[in-house]
Every structure is written in C-alpha cells, then in structure tokens.
Design a protein around this nucleic acid. Structure first.
Lengths: 225, 225
DNA sequence: ATTATTTTGTGATATGCATCACATTGTATA
DNA sequence: TATACAATGTGATGCATATCACAAAATAAT
C-alpha cells in the first residue's frame, strides 16, 4: 500500500519541507496501515526498526513503571512517533498504542535517517520538535510532582480540550484507570474528582463525554488553589 | 578568550565529529568562561541567544514549579546545555546553574545551527542525545511518581555514584533542600532517609561525604521493597 | 436475551509523608 | 573570637490520597 507522499494531506510542518526527491524516497519505502482503537503501534521490549508517522488519530505513549503502566503523554496526528526509541535504543523503551482509530505509516529507519541527512529544513524542524518535547517534559515533571490531584486533573482536561481536541466538548479517550496512570493517581481518585468537578458545575460528565462549563475555574484549579 | 577548539581536550563524541572548518568556526565564535560553584549559566525568563558547552564541572537543570524550584536533572561535563531552551523557545524555560566550579563555552546560536547543518555526523550525535534524553525523562517520569521516597533517594544516590562521579564515594553536590527538590520530597524526609540508610549500614554519611557500603541493598531499595 | 467481564461510583480505613516547631550544628561575616 | 545565618536533625501532628471492599452500571461475549 503506497500512496504518494507528495499528495499526503496530513504532512507535518517538517514533512512539508522535504525535497521532491526525498518525498519520492518516502513514497517507495513506507508501509501504510489502518489501525483500530486499542491497536498497538510500538511495543516496549521488541526490536525497533521503524519510525512511525501518525497520519490520523490519537495515540498514547506508555511504559511499564515499577508498579503500574505509566502513560507518559498523549500524541495526536500528524506526528512522528518512536524517534527516541528507535534512535536512542535498539529495543523499544516504550509502547505506543492507538486510543482511537488511526492511520499510520511505518518508515524504514535508514530511509528516515537518510532524509534527515539530506534535508536541512526537515532536520531543523525535527530538532525543534525534540526541543519542544524536552521542554514540555521538564514542565510536566515540575507540575505533576508538585500539584495536588485536582490540579493535575484540571491540567489534563484542559490539555485534552486545547491541545488534543481543540474543543471544550470531547469524549475522554481513556478509561478512568488509564486516566489515573496519566495523571499519577488512583482510579478511584479520578472518579471522585470527576464527580466533584461535575457537582461544582465546572465540567459536565456523562459517561466519557466531557464538557467544560467553567474554563476559568478549571484554569484556576490548574494553577492551583 | 578564544582557545582553539581543535585542541580542546573536552570534546563530546559529537564535537569530535566536526570538520576542521566547523571547528575553526567554533573557535572564532565562542566565549570561554571559568565559573564558580553556584554561578548561573542559563537563567529562566531571560532571552536565550547562546548554546552552552559545559567543558568541565557539574550543573543542575532547574525551573520554577508551581510551588518550589524543581531540579529536573544533573548534567556533568562534557555536554551541551540549553539546546531545548534556545531552539524551542526565545525565552529560557529553565535555569542551569553550576554546582561545582566549571568551565563553559558560550556559542552563538546561529553558529551552532550552522554547524548542525553542515556536519551530518555531528547532527546525528546531537539527535542521538535528544533521543537519549527523552527516553531518560520518560523513565524518570514513571519512576519518580510511582516509587516511594526511599526508592527515589536510592535511585538518586546510585545515579550520582554511577553516572556523575563514577565512584562509590563522593561529596553530595547539593544541599538537602536541593536534594529534596531533585527527588520530589521535603528537606526533612531527605535528612531522615539519609540517617536511616546510614544506620542500616547501606551508606555512610559524614556531612555531605557519602560512601556506598552495600550497593546490593541500595539497588534493591531502588527497585523497591 | 443472558451471562460474563470490564468499567465506574462511593464509603471506610490505613499510611506515607508534608508540615510545623524547635534544637543543633556548621559555616560565613564582622 | 564573637555573631549571624544557613544547613541539618528529629519529634509530634495533620492531611491528601492510596487501598480495600463492595455495589452498580455499562460493554462485550455467548
């Protein structure tokens, strides 16, 4: 299955910087796949030989912590996945799993490296990505460990609304157990805080359907009080 | 102050891949500085126009969390500092401070970008670095949040011994308050656990002088029990 | 439809650790 | 050498939240 990457409507900023030549190289060296919710994209502990381009959909990056599975972050399309794990280690250090239906392209590592070598602009964009990710992870580190649960949950909900779904109404793409693993709490606490927020009129919760009713409040809780 | 970068005895793996030409460019576009313990290298909130090369010494990367200053990680020479913050944002998103006497070179951002563009091998090594860092931060995220204090303290002590000082005897380069910020606890807990470890004969603590007496135990506590 | 299985809600209890409070030691500064 | 200030040790107390224990929904499988 090889669509022409030149016409791919889902290019990242980086990809749009590629030369025709490199795009052709991509075209002839990628494997396109349609995935369903829950399908594994990258599996911790297995050999990594591909970089993955997430064309459409939403994925979670997670890994085995000392006790429970830890969800490190959510990534939505379009985005490259697995760069750290394929470049930084022979064996995948983390898993990536689709949490919605998704389309992905598996790109051979060498081809990707080659393209990285040959396209300055692309290279810069990818490095830019790395930098943003590292900054993000620094901030997450400081926030997650210092804030109380309500603050972290507020954060996560705002993130879903603003960064992932770009809407104040959305379906939570995770179970409460998973949500707990993302926010560093217990499943029970997630449940409690969610109903709490609902009772306080800050959000409305109907099953996994969430609507932000009072964004200001949520932001205040996020900044913490 | 411009020593010839070609003869610099503190090159990183990446730097050793540079072309003569690029090394000359570096030579004529860097500012070499001797710093003392406690001196600021990068300051959160200020404009970032330089990449910093840590020639010798030890530094902490830290940023203002919602409540307290959070130490994200320790970095020892030789290493580049501030890439994420200079490439990823105009304003520094974090601080870097020397925790020992240190020597640094300030490198103009454009020059560094240029060198990154012109040297494939160097570029690859830098990307490799980014990948390793991201993996590390994922693991740290999972460990820090799931482990109890004793586990995290054991981790940190092992890290100092194995990665930073390469010796089982070393001077803790941080006050207990700082150590607490690194390990996500309170100063008091650091003090308590340290004396605990000492009493159990796992480490010996004399002021900031630390000696690991029973590494197996420490590793066990790190893996957690 | 019926049963099995996963997901969620909610109380009661336990606990790890932060916080407070103050003593003590160590280290700069006059 | 005296004085001030920062860093550390240690007990007592409180609190946020994990854990346990079920019940109730909701989903999936038969």
């Amino acid at each position: 299955m090889q669509n022409d990457c030149r016409n791919c409507p889902f290019k990242t900023k980086a990809t749009s910087m590629l030369s025709e030549c490199s795009l052709d190289q991509l075209t002839s060296n990628h494997l396109e796949l349609k995935l369903k919710k829950g399908d594994s994209i990258i599996k911790q502990g297995t050999y990594s030989t591909n970089v993955v381009f997430l064309r459409t959909g939403l994925a979670k990056i997670h890994l085995a912590g000392p006790y429970t599975e830890q969800i490190v972050k959510m990534v939505n399309a379009p985005s490259y996945l697995g760069l750290p794990t394929t470049f930084g280690s022979k064996i995948n250090q983390y898993s990536v799993t689709a949490v919605s239906d998704a389309e992905v392209c598996f790109i051979d590592l060498e081809v990707f490296q080659n393209i990285l070598d040959e396209n300055k602009e692309f290279n810069r964009e990818i490095i830019q990505e790395f930098c943003k990710n590292e900054l993000e992870s620094f901030h997450r580190c400081a926030n997650r460990t210092q804030k109380l649960i309500r603050g972290n949950m507020a954060d996560a909900i705002l993130d879903f609304a603003d960064k992932i779904f770009k809407s104040d109404t959305f379906m939570l793409p995770l179970s409460q157990t998973e949500f707990a693993n993302l926010v560093d709490t217990s499943r029970e606490s997630v449940s409690r805080v969610l109903t709490e927020f609902d009772k306080d009129g800050i959000i409305s919760v109907k099953g996994r359907q969430i609507e932000i009713l009072n964004k200001k409040s949520l932001q205040l809780i996020s900044q913490n009080g």
